[in-house]
Simulated scan of single mutants.
Amino acid sequence: MSLTDLPLLGMLRTRMHWHQARQGLLAENVANADMAGFRPRDLAEPSAGSAALAAPLGASVGGDGLARTDSGHIGLSASAGPNADPRRFKGFEVRPSGNGVNLEEEMMKAGDNQADYQLVATLYQKSLDALKIAVGKR
């Protein structure tokens, strides 16, 4: 077992992949802000105790880099899946064309998502640094 196979590091890696996938959906929402009938989507927040956060050893890794033990785990496709849910945002009317994208809200979400990703990436790097110190490689 290598140092990078620790459950904590696996959870941080999975969280970074989730933030990357969410950023893609938020960018898609902004890109389709003028498309008639488009509904904004967002990824469901993974639960802290979920087994899907820590990739088990021997799990298959898909083309997106995430280990998948079930087809329903953290889907990253742009199609409507179990994690992409169309939402009508509170306090915002859907335009007559049927478009429900609020650019200000999407950009706020994108900024928050980027900050959260940077936090998780920093935690991952600091954890690796601490492990290197512990084994005497630094």
Rank of each mutant, 00 (worst) to 15 (best):
K109E: 01
E28R: 15
G81F: 07
S97R: 09
P46C: 08
V61Q: 01
L26C: 08
L12H: 02
P86V: 05
Y124V: 05
G98V: 12
F38T: 06
G63P: 05
W18C: 07
G37E: 06
G100K: 06
L76S: 06
P46Q: 10
Q125M: 10
A31H: 12
K132M: 12
I74N: 02
A33H: 06
S97P: 08
P86N: 12
M11K: 08
D129A: 14
G65Q: 11
I133T: 15
V135G: 04
A78I: 01
H73T: 13
A36Q: 11
L25G: 01
T14G: 14
L123C: 08
A36L: 06
G58A: 10
A27L: 07
D34G: 04
Y117Q: 07
G111E: 01
A121C: 12
D129R: 11
D85T: 03
H17D: 09
R138F: 11
M16S: 10
D70V: 02
R95A: 15
A51L: 10
T69P: 03
D112G: 15
N99P: 03
S2N: 15
D42E: 11
T4I: 13
P82E: 12
G37V: 07
S127L: 02
A33G: 07
W18S: 02
S97H: 04
H19E: 04
A78L: 07
E104D: 12
S127K: 08
S77D: 13
E28Y: 00
K137E: 14
A31P: 03
S47M: 03
A130G: 13
A67V: 07
T69Y: 05
G91R: 07
D64S: 11
N102M: 08
A27N: 08
K126M: 05
L26A: 08
L57P: 09
Y124D: 13
K126L: 14
L57D: 15
L119A: 14
T69D: 10
F89R: 14
A115E: 09
S50M: 04
L53H: 03
R88P: 04
N32M: 06
T4A: 15
A59H: 01
A48L: 13
M16G: 10
L12T: 04
